[in-house]
Amino acid sequence: MTGDAVRVDDVVETMNSCELFDVMIDSHDATITAEPLKNYHRLLKAGTGRVGRIVMFQQCLQNGVMPFIVLEAQKEFF
């Protein structure tokens, strides 16, 4: 261990983000309605942007579009 502490909230948010991705993959072909969006938001504390990106990813999968990746260098333009 290097002495760098990891905040518990960060660990929980990362785990919840992974769970959100798993939920989305399991239902990637389902129509996006208010109910799944509510479920997506319950997994994250303040994840409006992350939920939006998951929905865009799901829409890409549903429409045969190659999902996008935003690289660190392009984050400011996203």
Rank of each mutant, 00 (worst) to 15 (best):
R7E: 15
Q62C: 01
R7G: 08
V23K: 14
P36I: 02
V65D: 01
R42M: 11
P36S: 00
M15Y: 04
A46L: 03
I25W: 14
M66R: 08
V11D: 03
R53L: 12
D26Y: 12
V6L: 09
M15L: 11
L20K: 01
D29Y: 03
F77W: 15
F77Q: 14
F68W: 11
P36A: 02
H41E: 13
F77T: 08
A46E: 14
V65P: 05
V55Q: 01
V70L: 04
M1C: 02
D29Q: 12
L44Y: 04
L44A: 01
L71C: 06
A46V: 10
M1R: 10
T2I: 05
E72L: 10
A5L: 13
H28R: 13
S17D: 02
D4C: 07
K75R: 03
S27D: 02
L20H: 01
V11L: 11
K75Q: 08
D9W: 05
D22F: 15
T14G: 05
K45M: 07
R7F: 04
I69Q: 12
K75G: 02
I54H: 02
N63S: 07
Q62E: 03
S17M: 13
I32G: 00
Q59H: 12
L20C: 00
M24P: 08
L61A: 05
Q62L: 02
M1N: 09
E35H: 05
E76F: 12
L43C: 00
D26W: 02
S27K: 10
H28Y: 14
V23G: 03
T31E: 15
L61I: 10
I69W: 10
V11A: 12
N63Q: 09
C18Y: 15
M56K: 13
T33M: 04
H28L: 08
M56F: 00
S17Q: 13
A34I: 06
V12D: 10
F21E: 13
N63Y: 06
M24W: 03
R53D: 09
E35S: 07
E72K: 15
